[in-house]
Write a protein that binds this DNA or RNA. Structure first.
Lengths: 214, 214
DNA sequence: TCTCAAACGGAACGGATCACTCCGTTCGGA
DNA sequence: TCCGAACGGAGTGATCCGTTCCGTTTGAGA
């Protein structure tokens, strides 16, 4: 046998491979069921629970890692949308579709509340939220959004789309696209629109999510 | 003291009162958290667990009762919508708003899967679904709905609205109204609408919900 | 070929939760 | 005063789950 596979070999190679496998498994399992047991993650990854605890001090650390990951993806999507300088509507819609497709909402808000957040996570979340607001304001300024839509409506839309879950992951993704298309039609500036009732959520209301349990 | 309060007195009166109190408590608790323990229902009702088990053989029976209740409400709403003979759009929208406001979706689909359904419940569900389809078709025939909207899209919309949960019950209701208004704008026949991507859910896909666990 | 440390799998432990039972208590009608 | 209906809630047994621990496997170096 070679002394190296890529760069590592033997047990080290297996360990390096498992790093990724475990994270992917955790993402899949916890997105499907936020309260799933650790053993389910191990099973999905095809490893023992020991391999899991070798990498993470406990369940919380794993969840925090996942959440942090999700926020980074979210930030990347928002930055990409802000970097775009074509059609303002497409930049906005593309961003929303990206968040939906990568199911980033499940990885962030949905996981919050199942663990005690660190200050760094809070900061990251605030940063992500600020970027998303910029994406929103840019579209708003361009006049492509209905006037009564508020920035804080966007997370609620993600929440609704995330609730769609039917069949396997692929089918779910297709259906989410379908209903996202529906709301996007409503979100776009249009003549005949009714006025949205009730105030949008406030920042404080969202903040309560991160505190104890749900 | 009188021999009767209304019609009953003493312990019997308390028992009759508790009947309703317990059901209301169960509805509130399980709608907030479908996996809540029985003791939470007792606490919310202000009674001991014993009082609960005096009325229901077990948790499942309570859940089935709740679900059956919800389906009956749903049927009533659908029948009311069909009885209306004014504006077809308003009949449809009123129905959807009614289901949203009474949170009937939580009481039915959301509870299904947490218990093993009886044949009667299945029948009731089928009946409810058939009525809802008639409401949908009526609106569709009147031309007030976008053409690419399918009857099976309606339950999915309920699902999304039900996912909205922020603050107390009243705030949640207000927010649901807000986002329901948003999708209703998209659901209504309109000129500039894009075509909805992907096929709507099938009856089989919905049926899978009622089987084992989730 | 032999040795050893790194990494693994998964049984076992301990704590928590929960559905359900059981019994002593309360209450009101006779 | 007595009795039974209804109650409250502690107790029970089972289940679940996070975490630990240890025997086993693997491959690199000697």
């Amino acid at each position: 046998m070679e002394t190296r596979t890529g760069r590592l070999s033997g047990r080290q190679a297996e360990a390096a491979r498992n790093d990724g496998v475990i994270l992917d498994a955790a993402r899949e399992v916890f997105m499907r069921e936020p309260g799933a047991p650790i053993s389910a993650v191990a099973e999905q990854a095809g490893v023992g629970v020991g391999a899991l605890y070798r990498r993470y001090a406990g369940k919380e650390e794993l969840l925090r890692t996942l959440c942090s990951d999700g926020l980074h993806r979210f930030v990347a999507l928002a930055e990409a949308a802000l970097a775009e300088d074509g059609d303002p509507w497409e930049a906005f819609a593309g961003f929303v579709r990206g968040v939906t497709d990568s199911d980033v909402h499940s990885l962030t808000v949905r996981l919050a509340g199942t663990f005690t957040p660190t200050p760094e996570l809070h900061e990251l979340a605030a940063h992500a939220s600020a970027l998303a607001n910029r994406v929103f304001r840019r579209a708003k300024a361009a006049g492509v959004l209905r006037p009564d839509l508020h920035a804080n409506d966007i997370p609620m839309i993600f929440e609704q789309i995330t609730a769609i879950r039917l069949g396997d992951a692929e089918r779910t993704a297709t259906l989410r696209r379908r209903y996202l298309a529906l709301v996007l039609d409503a979100v776009r500036a249009q003549p005949g629109a009714t006025r949205l009732p009730g105030p949008p959520p406030s920042a404080e209301e969202f903040g309560a999510r991160w505190r104890p349990e749900a």
